Computed example of a mutant assay.
Amino acid sequence: MGRKSTRNTIVETGLQVMFQSGYVGTSVRDIVAAAGVPQGCFTNHFRSKEQFTSEVLQHYFDNLKALIQDTLGDATLSPRDRLRRYLDAITSRLEDAHWRRGCLIGDLSLEAPGHSELLRHRLGEIFLEWRAPFAECIAAAQAQGEIDTQFAPDDLAEFLLSSWLGSILRMKVERNPEPLERFKRIAFATVFATKSQGEKV
């Protein structure tokens, strides 16, 4: 296996620094110090902090898309169970971080739009791409009678992702999984319930 490139090292390190300090609280000096590289390495690879953060976002989203494929793309499960499996897989990842780390997309959505139009637009593009596989899975669940058809798949996908990100924010404050589990209990007993479902909230 070849050595990891300096560029990749800076991106992966920057991801961890931004998780800890946020977009505004992270400086280029913080990133290169954590990566153990001269500041000139950063400027050789990235035009600006904005461009760097856009690449960090893409790196994070690429990893997230792999998880989406593993869960929503699992043909051995029903579409509705695939949605639950995705949320459970994210919960497991957050547990590994002791409930201290959230979702970088959500974190940057709170901070970056007030400071960067480039990142605001990039986040908008990511949300559209992120929504698509969830809408497709929800549509399949509706076609199989697993989820009520009162709402359009795109709207339900938007609701799921937005509400889930809100639950992750609460989780970071409370430092426990209850906000995540509460969302799953209520969502799957209401908007993602089957017509004949007997689950209780």
Rank of each mutant, 00 (worst) to 15 (best):
A140I: 02
A139W: 00
L128M: 12
G14T: 01
S27H: 10
V24E: 14
F134K: 03
A189T: 13
S48R: 10
D96Y: 03
C103W: 04
I31R: 04
N176P: 00
I31G: 03
D81N: 15
D155G: 11
I186Q: 14
H115D: 09
G102H: 06
Q51L: 04
S109D: 09
S27L: 07
N44F: 13
F19I: 01
E178N: 12
I147R: 06
I186M: 15
R122V: 00
Q69S: 12
F42C: 00
S162C: 14
P179S: 15
G22S: 11
F42D: 05
S163F: 03
A139E: 14
K184A: 10
A139N: 12
E125K: 12
Q51T: 03
V56H: 08
D62A: 15
I68A: 08
I138K: 07
L67F: 07
G2H: 09
A89L: 00
G102L: 03
D81E: 15
L160V: 04
E129Q: 15
E117S: 10
D88A: 12
E178F: 05
G198I: 07
P38S: 10
I138E: 06
R170E: 13
D154C: 09
L64Y: 15
I168W: 01
P113R: 02
L15H: 13
V56D: 06
H115A: 01
P179W: 09
I168A: 05
W99Q: 04
E12C: 03
T13R: 10
S109I: 02
L87Q: 12
A34I: 02
A187R: 04
Y23F: 14
R3Y: 08
R82P: 05
L77K: 15
G25Y: 05
S116L: 05
F134P: 04
F42A: 02
Q16S: 10
A97D: 11
T71F: 01
S5G: 12
D70C: 06
R120Q: 14
D107F: 00
A152W: 09
T6V: 14
G124Y: 02
Q51V: 04
I68Q: 15
R185M: 08
E111M: 08
F188V: 03
L161I: 15
N8H: 09
T53D: 13
L118F: 06
S54I: 02
A89Q: 10
H59M: 07
C137S: 15
R85L: 12
R122F: 02
L161G: 06
